[in-house]
């Protein structure tokens, strides 16, 4: 068994993308002088895990010769991800607007 297979490059790429995304969010929040509240964190983490599951299902379903399952996984998991992301965005945005209005 190879200790590191070609898949390693894929995992590193995903790791970089996720790390980059996390740093980006952290910077945006810092620049806006905003802190996220507990339920926003929960939704964001849920978003993240659902996104991971969706990507895995999408790619693995093609490996399983199940194209329809692959595309439908984008729909069935993508919609909840979008909804959660919108809730988090609107919640943060609402607070930001308030802070801006007060300052």
């Amino acid at each position: 068994m190879k200790l590191i297979t070609w898949n390693w490059f894929w995992y590193v790429l995903v790791g970089f993308l996720m790390g980059g995304g996390a740093v980006m969010i952290w910077h945006i929040l810092k620049n806006m002088k905003l802190k996220m509240v507990w339920f926003e964190w929960i939704l964001l983490i849920l978003c993240f895990f659902t996104f991971m599951l969706m990507s895995q299902t999408f790619i693995a379903s093609f490996q399983e010769y199940e194209p329809r399952a692959a595309w439908l996984s984008l729909v069935f998991m993508g919609i909840p991800i979008l909804l959660m992301a919108v809730v988090v965005y609107r919640s943060i945005n609402k607070r930001y607007s308030k802070i801006k209005a007060l300052s």
């Binding site: 898949n7 490059f9 790429l13 790619i59 093609f62 490996q63």
Partner: peptide
């Protein structure tokens, strides 16, 4: 990404 992960199709 899919190809890198061994995309047989």
């Amino acid at each position: 990404a899919a190809y890198a992960s061994g995309f047989k199709n």
